[in-house]
Amino acid sequence: AIERGSKVKILRKESYWYGDVGTVASIDKSGIIYPVIVRFNKVNYNGFSGSAGGLNTNNFAEHELEVV
């Protein structure tokens, strides 16, 4: 089962992080479509409006993740 702290591989082909491994930061139990927040070591794009980097978290559905 996917739980907080799990290392997961991203299976969503259109994702910037496809094939990468991230760490589960949290799981939303409220029934939303993409409840699993995954944190990565790298950012997906340069930040804007003065922020240092881009996003390094993204929401995924459990079926888009594979525990490694």
Rank of each mutant, 00 (worst) to 15 (best):
Ala1Ile: 11
Ala1Cys: 15
Ala1Glu: 10
Ile2Val: 09
Ile2Gly: 02
Ile2Met: 08
Ile2Leu: 08
Glu3Gln: 13
Glu3Asp: 08
Glu3His: 08
Glu3Asn: 09
Arg4Leu: 14
Ser6His: 09
Ser6Asp: 10
Lys7Trp: 11
Lys7Phe: 11
Lys7Cys: 15
Val8His: 01
Val8Cys: 14
Val8Arg: 01
Lys9His: 04
Lys9Met: 04
Lys9Gly: 02
Lys9Pro: 02
Ile10Asn: 02
Ile10Pro: 01
Ile10Trp: 01
Leu11Lys: 06
Arg12Phe: 06
Arg12Cys: 14
Glu14Val: 05
Glu14Gly: 08
Glu14Trp: 05
Glu14Thr: 09
Ser15Gln: 00
Ser15His: 03
Ser15Glu: 03
Tyr16Val: 07
Tyr16Asp: 06
Tyr16Lys: 04
Tyr18Ser: 03
Tyr18Thr: 02
Tyr18Trp: 04
Tyr18Phe: 12
Tyr18Asn: 02
Tyr18Val: 03
Gly19Lys: 04
Gly19Asp: 07
Asp20Cys: 14
Val21Ile: 13
Val21Leu: 07
Val21Lys: 00
Val21Thr: 07
Val21Arg: 02
Gly22Trp: 05
Gly22Pro: 01
Thr23Lys: 03
Thr23Ser: 03
Thr23Asp: 04
Ala25Lys: 08
Ala25Phe: 07
Ser26Arg: 11
Ser26Ala: 12
Ser26Trp: 11
Ile27Tyr: 08
Ile27Val: 09
Ile27Pro: 01
Asp28Gly: 05
Asp28Cys: 13
Lys29Met: 12
Lys29Arg: 10
Lys29Leu: 13
Ser30Cys: 12
Ser30Met: 05
Ser30His: 05
Gly31Thr: 09
Ile32His: 10
Ile32Tyr: 07
Ile33Trp: 07
Ile33Pro: 13
Ile33Ser: 12
Ile33Glu: 10
Ile33Ala: 12
Pro35Asp: 11
Pro35Leu: 15
Pro35Ala: 11
Pro35His: 09
Pro35Gln: 10
Val38Ile: 04
Val38Tyr: 00
Arg39Trp: 12
Arg39Asn: 06
Arg39Thr: 11
Phe40Ala: 03
Asn41Val: 11
Asn41Cys: 15
Lys42Ile: 07
Lys42Arg: 09
Val43Arg: 05
Val43Lys: 08
Asn44Tyr: 15
Asn44Glu: 14
Tyr45Ser: 15
Asn46Lys: 03
Gly47Thr: 05
Gly47Lys: 04
Phe48Val: 14
Phe48Asp: 15
Phe48Pro: 15
Ser49Asn: 11
Ser49Ile: 12
Gly50Asn: 08
Gly50Leu: 03
Ser51Glu: 14
Ser51Ile: 10
Ser51Met: 11
Ser51Phe: 06
Ala52Glu: 14
Ala52Gln: 12
Ala52Gly: 13
Gly54Lys: 04
Gly54Ile: 09
Gly54Glu: 09
Gly54Met: 06
Gly54Phe: 08
Gly54Arg: 04
Leu55Cys: 15
Asn56Cys: 15
Asn56Arg: 09
Asn56Tyr: 12
Asn56Thr: 12
Asn56Phe: 10
Thr57Ser: 09
Thr57Leu: 05
Thr57Glu: 13
Thr57Val: 09
Thr57Lys: 06
Thr57Phe: 11
Asn58Ser: 15
Asn59Met: 09
Phe60Trp: 01
Ala61Pro: 02
Glu62Cys: 14
Glu62Phe: 14
His63Leu: 05
His63Tyr: 10
His63Trp: 13
His63Gln: 06
Glu64Asn: 01
Glu64Lys: 02
Leu65Phe: 03
Leu65Cys: 06
Leu65Gly: 00
Glu66Ser: 05
Glu66Ala: 07
Val67Ile: 11
Val67Cys: 05
Val67Arg: 05
Val67Gln: 05
Val67Phe: 06
Val68Asp: 02
